[in-house]
Design a binder for these strands. Structure first.
Length: 465
RNA sequence: GUCCCUAUCGUCUAGAGGCCUAGGACAAUACCCUUUCACGGUAUGAACCGGGGUUCGAAUCCCCGUGGGGACGCCA
């Protein structure tokens, strides 16, 4: 507890915020919250060619939808160039970095030779200054890159908070480039300077960065900077067990909004994917933050399971406040060109349907017939609105025109009609559903009538009588 | 190829040497509830990758295979 916890989420704005990034952000956010720390958002936009302002916005939107608020930032690496260049200059002076004039094609050739010899491809250190070593004369007209002088022997080790102790021999590493020929700094270098400057105490990030960690630790140490704790999260696989890709599965979190998921369902699902707290399955973010720890993160990859997400979403839909649901559905209906004010009060209809659907689009589908004139198919009319049924509906209509407009009275009117016609409930309820909503399934019919309103019910009925 | 990570029901997972005849959840199946369709309830089936150790005792620790994933960029 001596140091306040500071975590960060550091996406590169080359695309939207996808489900894997969202989980990384969630865990980093939760860890900071859990320890009363600070959650920082940093945009790693040094890849100018692929970074876009749209992607930055998409990431911000995704975070906002999920409710993952950052305490500091967003910081943009492109705005920190002066600082990076300052550090590089210092390293050059200190001798922890050096200029390398090797041409890219020359480097490429070296790599190919090494691969052919079944060796790990790495820079051979030809421009690395050593005591007593004579360096070639720098070729004229060539802009050098700057390489980090990585320790030659020994091992780099850290206690990964999710994977345990990891040791990498320095012999596996090479003198990687920290500044390109045009002077711009590279990823591993920027990350290190940023994590240092921003006082990051816990680096919680994707598993694909395990290989970068030893390089970053070496750099940090060369800089005399403190080494943070690292926690590497395993990746999320697609529904079919294969790697998520743009082609399948790796959709924007905003797609889940479009698909009718509630953010709390997505959050709960993500929290439970790769982390656990005993048998707990359903919990709020408040509860999650209280429970969250690095010790119970799974170290192996997890397969995304849409069905479980659906179940959670249905669960949160059931317990959602009617007014909120009505608002969400109204927006969706409006997008379909339907006036949500046109029919029965949406809030009441939503209450009737919310425990029968798995997402907001299904809810909108269910509420739509309450707002528009429905046109059941000829086949459905033939099947349900038989002469017998119509006769019963006609009698029912008479009673409905006069009874008190509430569930019990409506139910009584139906029962009287059934008795008078010698019919069973479904024989009248089904045709009634078809006439009113255009489909033979609905919640309890008396409740549907009550909510639709007398005028609407009688009007819709009259089209068939 | 080299290095690193990883392995419990179909899926997410519980499990820190005896509480494990391996627990929960989703999904599946059956039944119950029911005014249709759902919701809900109850029940059932379903797993420790293989082989060696260590130990009185291993899902848990170690080694070797095998499977899966990642990294080896003047990308991040």
């Amino acid at each position: 507890m001596s140091h306040p916890v500071r975590t960060r989420f550091a996406p590169s704005p080359t695309g939207y915020l996808h489900i894997g990034g969202a989980r990384t952000a969630l865990f980093a956010w939760a860890y900071a919250r859990r320890h009363g720390g600070t959650f920082i958002l940093r945009i790693e936009d040094t890849d100018v060619a692929r970074s876009t302002p749209e992607a930055v916005q998409a990431i911000l939107d995704g975070m906002a939808w999920l409710g993952l608020a950052h305490d500091e930032g967003p910081f943009y690496q492109m705005q920190r160039m002066d600082r990076y260049k300052e550090v590089i200059a210092q390293m050059l002076v200190a001798g922890t970095a050096y200029h390398c004039y090797m041409a890219p094609d020359e480097l490429e050739r070296l790599r190919e030779e090494q691969m052919a010899r079944k060796e790990k491809p790495r820079y051979d250190g030809r421009w690395r200054p050593e005591a007593g070593k004579v360096l070639p004369a720098p070729p004229t007209g060539v802009q050098p890159v700057v390489r980090f002088r990585n320790p030659f022997d020994g091992v780099v080790a850290w206690d990964d908070q999710v994977k345990g102790r990891i040791e990498i021999s320095n012999g596996e590493l090479d003198d990687f480039i920290i500044a390109r020929a045009d002077g711009t700094p590279t990823y591993n270098f920027c990350v290190v300077v940023d994590d240092w400057d921003m006082g990051i105490t816990h680096v919680i990030r994707g598993d694909d960065h395990v290989n970068n960690t030893p390089r970053q630790i070496n750099l940090l140490q060369a800089l005399g900077a403190p080494v943070p704790q690292y926690a590497h999260l395993s990746m999320i696989l697609g529904d079919d067990g294969t790697k998520l890709s743009k082609r399948h599965g790796a959709v924007s979190v905003m797609q889940y909004d479009d698909d009718g998921y509630l953010p709390e369902a997505v959050l709960n699902y993500l929290a439970r994917l790769g982390w656990s707290h005993g048998d707990e399955e359903v919990f709020s973010m408040e509860q999650f933050v209280q429970w969250f720890d690095l010790d119970h993160i799974t170290s192996s990859a997890a397969q995304f399971n849409t069905e479980k997400l659906n179940w959670l979403n249905a669960h949160y839909l059931k317990s959602a406040v009617d007014a909120r649901l009505a608002g969400e559905v109204a927006q969706r209906l409006a997008k379909r060109g339907i006036d949500p004010e046109a029919g029965a009060p949406l809030e009441q209809v939503a209450a009737l349907y919310k425990d029968r659907v798995a997402n907001l689009n299904e809810l909108a589908d269910a509420l739509e017939p309450f707002c528009v004139v429905v046109h059941p198919s000829a086949e459905m009319i033939a099947t349900h609105l038989t002469d017998v049924a119509r006769a019963a509906l006609k009698m029912l209509r008479g009673k409905l025109a006069e009874c008190a407009w509430e569930k019990a009275a409506i139910s009584a009117a139906m029962k009287e009609t059934l008795a008078a016609c010698g019919l069973k409930m479904p024989q009248v309820a089904m045709p009634l559903r078809v006439a009113l909503l255009g489909q033979p399934q609905s919640p309890a019919i008396d409740a549907v009538l009550a909510v639709l309103g007398r005028d609407e019910v009688l009007g819709r009925l009259d089209r068939y009588l």
